[in-house]
Amino acid sequence: MGGSAFNFLLASSFPRLPPPVYHALKARLTPVLRQFYVHVAVPAEAPEKTDHGDLDFVVFCPRNSSAPHSVNVPHELIKAALGATHCILEEGNRTSNFAIVVDRGAWGHLGCTEQEEKNRQSAGEHDIYCQVDVHVCADKNEWERVVYFHSYGDLGMIQGLVASNVGLVLGVNGLKFPHPPHPTLILCQDFTIISKFFGWSNERRNSGFDNRQQIFEWVSESRFFDPKCFQTSGEGIRKVKVQRTMYSDFVAWAKQRLAEGGLTSVDMAEVKRRRERVREEALIEFGRQDEVEAYVKEFEGRKKLKSSFNGTVVNAWTHSKGNWRKVKTIMTIKERKD
């Protein structure tokens, strides 16, 4: 969710935050934001992380809002409460960025004096800052989804990769059924239900992970994870930035599982058959099969009608000899009768 948004300031002014600094900042600012929002959370951090780029808060439901339909607390109040010097503000259910100056010597009591001084040398005469992002959600369901999907680093994206391998889309808005050229369907937005469908234990996830290995093993417990069929690129699988090291490590881990098991990748025909089986199962599981079949039937009917009843065909039938106004009149009358 992060990365420095303040491109008008030096990149060196936003140092990576050592874990003690990050956790102290989170402990200090969480109660501050809870004065303004009913629901405040920081997505669970990726295990074994040696530093942090910024601090991400996900919030919902302003307290004592003077604007009943607004999801935002007035930005000037949040800026003042956080003690931010610079900010990039967004209205509605969006993310606003705040830059908070690090006072000289502030990292000393956390045992990070050396890191602070090194960062100040890199910034030269300029201040150094902590970046704090506040993502405002429109409702409780969105708040829960955002917190879930962005917890444990790249885990949500890794889960999305497993979904892509079986022809589905899993993201911060839930589980979707892509069906081009038809509209994409949202199958479910409750990650507890989605996890059960994939075969992921909610209890295990909620208990937390101590390292990446535990996360990778949890992901592989899905009944839809098969090293033989696992793909990391191709149709329906989006490219991921190289900075996503946890994602990259999972891809390497999955390939290693294939090699260690003495397995060989299956042919693409089998991959496609498996994908269609899972897609059909998903429609049945979430009660959307009849809807999709009815839509496709109607779509094909319109397509067939269009191929047999169009301007060119009507022109030939009626011997209109290119009188397109006459052709249009005939087609309009026919459509009204139908």
Rank of each mutant, 00 (worst) to 15 (best):
P74G: 12
M268L: 07
Y37Q: 02
M331S: 13
N206K: 02
H75N: 14
I237C: 04
E300K: 13
L55F: 01
F299V: 03
L263H: 07
V58R: 03
T245G: 03
V172D: 03
S207E: 11
D249T: 03
S248H: 12
H23F: 13
I158Y: 01
S96R: 04
R212W: 13
D190M: 06
R336Y: 11
K118G: 00
R302S: 00
G105A: 06
S195Q: 08
F36S: 07
R288Y: 05
A27E: 15
V42N: 11
E291C: 02
I284P: 02
L283F: 05
G160A: 02
T50R: 15
F57E: 05
P19E: 06
S222W: 14
P74Q: 09
L82P: 03
P227S: 13
R104I: 01
P227C: 10
W107G: 01
V166Y: 08
L9G: 12
V146R: 07
H23A: 06
K303R: 12
R223H: 09
V73R: 08
K326R: 12
K176W: 00
P15G: 07
K79T: 15
F14G: 02
V71E: 04
K228C: 11
D338N: 10
G311I: 04
G199Q: 12
E270V: 03
V71T: 14
F209G: 12
V172L: 11
L29Q: 10
H69A: 15
S233T: 03
T245C: 01
L155A: 05
I186W: 00
P74I: 09
C188I: 01
D267C: 02
I158C: 04
P181Y: 09
Q213L: 13
P180E: 13
H319P: 09
V266A: 13
S66Y: 07
K118Q: 07
I88M: 10
P68N: 15
G236W: 10
H69P: 02
A138K: 09
S222Y: 11
E300F: 05
S307L: 07
G311E: 15
V134R: 10
S66F: 06
P47V: 08
F216Y: 15
F230Q: 05
L161K: 09
D154H: 03
R244D: 03
E335M: 12
A81D: 13
A294M: 07
H182R: 08
E270R: 11
S96I: 04
W200Q: 06
C137A: 10
I194G: 10
A67E: 11
S65K: 10
I194E: 13
N173L: 04
V296T: 03
G322S: 14
Q231F: 06
E144T: 07
K321L: 15
P20Y: 08
K337Q: 14
D190V: 09
E117K: 14
D127L: 05
R275D: 02
W107E: 00
H135I: 04
L110D: 00
W107K: 00
G236Q: 03
A24I: 05
T232G: 08
S222F: 13
K321H: 15
